[in-house]
């Protein structure tokens, strides 16, 4: 059995729109690979080509150039898709069916026998909080309920690879937590996860690696810890200057590497490198300032993302993104 579950090589998709067949490049150049048991977040702003790439992965659309391999096969091969659980972006189902009927239909397409189908349907609908609505027609279901049903039907075949397009969209905070927990559980069961999102902090805890797209190109890719450079931590401190006043502020800002972040009245927020924390605290004590808050801050995905996206935009079709794509493969 192949250990590379998903592989994209220089994927490109150009749509032709309108009567004049104007070209719209949705995906310019995307390469990535996902191995068994790995979990990858697929990130990027609106219109960066995530959904288009995912549709290529599932054989809904054909790439203009480049290749897609799913379990080492062409996605048009039904055997390749047999082991996949897919959740479309804002999923829709026949609204005259009930969740149980949707599950039955899906079960038939997966070729499940009746007993397996029934047991799994019951368990999954229950697990996703649809137990009470299992026999109600979908007409009038809320977006979040459809999302839950989408997830339930994606797990019916007990897939080895789960591909979710924005699994958290449309869910309330409790729903998000439930879905995140479920995905963490899938991950701990050894399943591979590939999912898109633009809510970066949500998925940080869930993925080993990320691929970040912007305008159809990979702008950053690799293992999260490597990308985020967690070695170079920064610490943010909030001081109440009190009696020390202006002199205290000057003393604090005189600490090596210290940067002012915010100054409101007698309060000063500043940041120092990790190894300057001791010096900062001593300076604060000496100057009579009162420490109110001390927060370690690391490079967040958001910052990384904004940095990368901005850089690519500034350089246009630069070599940079391709370097990132090539270098970043896990």
């Amino acid at each position: 059995m192949t250990t590379v579950f998903l592989e994209l090589r220089n994927l490109q998709k150009v749509f032709r729109v309108g009567l004049l067949a104007r070209k719209v490049t949705a995906v310019r150049d995307v390469s990535l690979s996902l191995r068994r048991g790995e979990s990858m977040g697929f990130l990027g702003p609106n219109g960066s080509g995530k959904t288009t790439s995912i549709k290529c992965i599932l054989g809904l659309i054909r790439p203009t150039a480049g290749s897609v391999k799913l379990f080492g096969r062409d996605p048009w091969d039904i055997e390749a898709r047999a082991g996949v659980g897919y959740l479309p972006e804002s999923p829709y189902f026949y609204d005259w069916l009930t969740p149980r009927e949707v599950m039955n239909y899906a079960g038939d397409l997966f070729g499940l026998d009746r007993t397996t189908r029934r047991t799994r349907t019951g368990a999954l609908l229950e697990r996703l909080g649809l137990g009470h609505a299992a026999d109600r027609p979908l007409r009038g279901f809320s977006k979040g309920m459809l999302q839950r049903l989408g997830i339930a039907q994606s797990l019916l075949n007990d897939p080895e690879l789960v591909i979710y397009d924005e699994p958290l969209s449309g869910l309330d905070p409790i729903g998000r937590k439930e879905v995140l927990d479920l995905m963490a559980e899938l991950r701990s069961q050894g399943k591979s996860l590939f999912f898109s999102s633009h809510v970066l902090t949500d998925i940080e805890t869930l993925c080993d690696a990320v691929t970040i797209l912007n305008q159809g190109k990979v702008v950053a890719a690799g293992r999260l810890d490597a990308l985020l450079d967690r070695g170079a931590l920064e610490v943010e401190a909030l001081f109440e200057l009190g009696a020390g006043g202006e002199a205290a502020a000057r003393a604090l800002l005189a600490v090596e590497g210290s940067v002012e972040r915010e100054r409101t009245g007698a309060r000063l927020r500043l940041a120092v490198p990790h190894d300057a924390v001791d010096a900062l605290l001593q300076a604060g004590l000496a100057a009579g300032a009162k420490l109110e808050q001390l927060l370690p801050r690391r490079d967040s995905l958001e910052e990384l993302f904004v940095r990368k996206a901005v850089r690519v935009e500034a350089r246009g079709e630069s070599q940079d993104s391709q370097d990132a794509a090539a270098k970043g493969q896990p």
Binding site: G59, R81, P88, P91, L109, G150
Partner: peptide
Amino acid sequence: ERKTLYAILPKPIR
């Protein structure tokens, strides 16, 4: 139109 196809065709069906 109703996007129901996107949940069906990615399943192992030709």
